[in-house]
């Protein structure tokens, strides 16, 4: 079997697998960076005011959603993989994974920045923390849209 044959025979599952991998890897990286950033900010707060742990945990969790979105898409895409699938099918799965892969990656980092700034609100003016949370959640809208589109793409075409 030469390379071309392998490509024709198994290309589908390889591309599909790539899509699954990307859907986990990229939002995962983004979320880790975002949560890490907020974590640094909150741990700074914990040194001085440990009693604010509850609210700071809330802020820290926010950029974590993107990783979860990517994971759900990956699980669903994985359910459609089989070794003899056609190249077109595999490529389609890859495409379907791209929205959440890219948007999830970047939006998590941006959300992390907003949430870290929100920690400053928590530090200085605890009553207004809700507003910081709202600002931060707004960033997630775009990850959500990408997630839903990836979801619909995966379900919309049957091969």
């Amino acid at each position: 079997m030469n390379f071309a044959e392998i490509f024709v025979n198994f290309g589908g599952v390889v591309f599909g697998g790539l899509g699954v991998a990307l859907a986990v890897i990229m939002p995962g990286i983004g979320s880790a960076r975002g949560v890490g950033l907020v974590g640094e900010a909150t741990s700074g707060l914990m040194i001085e005011e440990p009693e604010k742990f509850g609210k700071s945990l809330l802020l820290e969790l926010l950029p974590g959603t993107q990783g979860l979105y990517g994971f759900v898409i990956a699980l669903l895409a994985m359910g459609q993989l089989y070794s003899t699938m056609e190249i077109a099918h595999g490529l389609f799965i890859l495409m379907a994974c791209l929205p959440i892969a890219f948007v999830g990656w970047k939006s998590a980092i941006f959300q992390g920045k907003v949430a870290a700034a929100g920690v400053s609100i928590l530090a200085k003016n605890e009553q207004q923390t809700t507003k910081g949370i709202i600002f931060s959640v707004m960033v997630e809208t775009y990850a959500l849209l990408a997630f839903v589109l990836s979801l619909i793409l995966l379900n919309s075409v049957t091969f």
């Binding site: 950033l37 900010a41 700074g44 200085k124």
Partner: peptide, 11 residues
């Protein structure tokens, strides 16, 4: 980031 938050509390 961490230092800024600590500073905010100290402020």
């Amino acid at each position: 980031t961490q230092g800024v938050v600590r500073t905010r509390v100290l402020e």
